[in-house]
Computed example of a mutant assay.
Amino acid sequence: MYLLITYDVCTITPDGAKRLRQIARICKDYGQRVQNSVFECSVDPAQLVQLRHKLLSTIDPTVDSLRIYQLGKNYRAQISCYGRVTSFDIEGELIV
């Protein structure tokens, strides 16, 4: 399943800055950063449960915001990119 994860972490305190880094690190383990606080992830249902648990146990729900959008099977038809493209096809072949 294809996900779009967005977050806004309050970084007024040192703890907030630490949470911001932790959230980004967790998201990077499951997908790719496409903007500062936006990640695209391709996960199976079990990975989604793990990812959601990790993120929810990291954020401070009183000051932070987290959104997880499940884009469905036909997600490619729903994505339009304009300007500089900074991502790759997460489900395509990767040549190293």
Rank of each mutant, 00 (worst) to 15 (best):
S57R: 08
V49W: 00
Q32C: 09
T62H: 12
T62L: 15
F88L: 08
A24M: 07
V9C: 06
R84H: 02
T11K: 09
S80T: 13
I5H: 01
S87Q: 11
Y82S: 08
L3F: 10
R21Q: 14
A24K: 07
L94W: 04
K28I: 08
A77V: 08
I59R: 02
T11R: 13
G16W: 00
V96M: 12
Y82V: 14
S57P: 04
V34Q: 04
L48A: 09
Q47A: 00
V43T: 12
L71K: 02
V85N: 07
G16P: 00
L51K: 02
A24T: 10
P14T: 05
G92T: 13
E40Y: 11
L56G: 01
P14A: 01
V43F: 06
Y2Q: 14
D89W: 05
R52V: 03
S42Q: 03
Q22D: 15
F39A: 06
L94Y: 05
R76K: 13
F39Y: 14
L20P: 06
G16Y: 00
R33P: 05
Q22F: 02
L20A: 13
C81W: 05
L4T: 09
C41G: 06
T58P: 10
P61F: 00
G31D: 03
T86A: 02
K28A: 13
L94N: 07
S57M: 10
G16T: 01
R76N: 07
G31W: 01
L55K: 00
L56Q: 12
